[in-house]
């Protein structure tokens, strides 16, 4: 696990070494003299060998010091700390939406397997799965924002000002992020339910006098959710990465926004910290998935 983080950190650091662009140049602008650039590189410590800078940076990171932004006069920590709640809130709302919507829809489709409802569900699922979130975002902005005026496009409200308003504004982008994941969840869960439905314990449950609904909720659902856990774990990491684009569509100053501006400014400390953060999220989600597995599936040894 630590090894994974180590690997990711090295790759990230190395990547920005290789891709063209010089932070000193982008900070000073194109009309800077070579002397000015050399002086700034010296001051930023960019002249030292790659490996030395890497371990220097890694050591700082381990101590919790992610350095200062090249372009803003702030520490990386304070910049990220400011934006993190926005992206995290959006991801949490999306995930809750995915779980709350996909379970009942999958149950419904499984119940009416082979019927018109099931086929209509299948087709809309295939479509929704394939549509990217940013496009859904544009669609939602257009329909619910501009036409129906449920929310003001671009009218982001800071969580410091008005928490309810903040959540309200995040709802639309969260829906845009949730829809493709939700469609995928429905598809996976529906087929998991149908697979469980053919197992012997279902017949045993019926033989005790359970109704179809009771067989479903008491017995089948828990077993069918097992394969979904991995998918949901991956979805969370995916949503954080996916929020970068959706934040642009909805004009939300979240992590995605600073990531994009930092990349174009060659503000490496910020970019590296954000990518490390995403790596940490992926690793933590894996851990959570593992723990959930152990809770829900007793066959996995403790």
């Amino acid at each position: 696990m630590l090894l994974t983080l180590f690997g990711v950190s090295f790759l990230v650091f190395a990547a920005f070494e290789i891709i063209p662009g010089d932070p000193a140049i982008s900070k000073l602008g194109t009309d800077a003299t070579p002397e000015m650039i050399a002086a700034l590189r010296e001051q930023m410590g960019l002249n030292r060998p790659f490996i030395v800078r890497y371990f220097d940076w890694l050591g700082d990171c381990i101590r919790g010091d992610f350095g200062r932004s090249y372009s803003y006069n702030r520490t990386v920590i304070s910049m990220i700390g400011d934006k993190l709640p926005i992206t995290v809130t959006m991801t949490i709302i999306s995930m809750l939406l995915v779980i709350a919507v996909s379970i009942p829809v999958a149950l419904l489709l499984a119940k009416y397997m082979g019927s018109t409802i099931d086929r209509a569900g299948y087709i809309s699922n295939q479509i929704l799965m394939a549509v990217p979130s940013f496009f859904l975002g544009i669609l939602i902005t257009y329909i619910f924002g501009l036409t129906l005026r449920f929310f003001t496009p671009g009218g982001y409200i800071s969580y410091r000002q008005n928490f309810a308003g903040f959540i309200g504004y995040l709802l639309a982008p969260s829906v845009a992020i949730a829809i493709p994941k939700c469609a995928m969840s429905v598809k996976l869960l529906r087929s998991a339910i149908l697979e469980e439905w053919n197992k012997d314990y279902v017949r045993t449950a019926y033989s005790r006098g359970n109704s179809t609904m009771q067989v479903m909720y008491r017995h089948v659902l828990k077993n069918a959710l097992i394969p979904l856990i991995t998918f949901w774990g991956m979805a969370v990491a995916d949503m954080i990465a996916g929020s970068i684009v959706v934040e642009q569509v909805f004009n939300i100053p979240g992590l995605g926004r600073i990531l994009l501006t930092s990349i174009s400014n060659r503000d490496y400390p910020v970019v590296e910290a954000i990518i490390l953060l995403i790596a940490v999220v992926v690793i933590v989600m894996n851990l959570i998935v593992d723990i959930l597995y152990r809770c829900i599936d007793p066959r996995i040894s403790k």
């Binding site: 197992k199 045993t204 017995h219 599936d297």
Partner: peptide
């Protein structure tokens, strides 16, 4: 009717099956 049948199943009429390995719910 189904509802009345369920009232008998597991109450007056019970079943045991051939495969004890799969007849029980693995997560219960």
């Amino acid at each position: 009717p189904r509802h009345d049948l369920r009232g008998l199943q597991g109450d007056e009429i019970s079943v045991i099956f051939q495969e004890p390995m799969t007849a029980l719910n693995p997560t219960m």
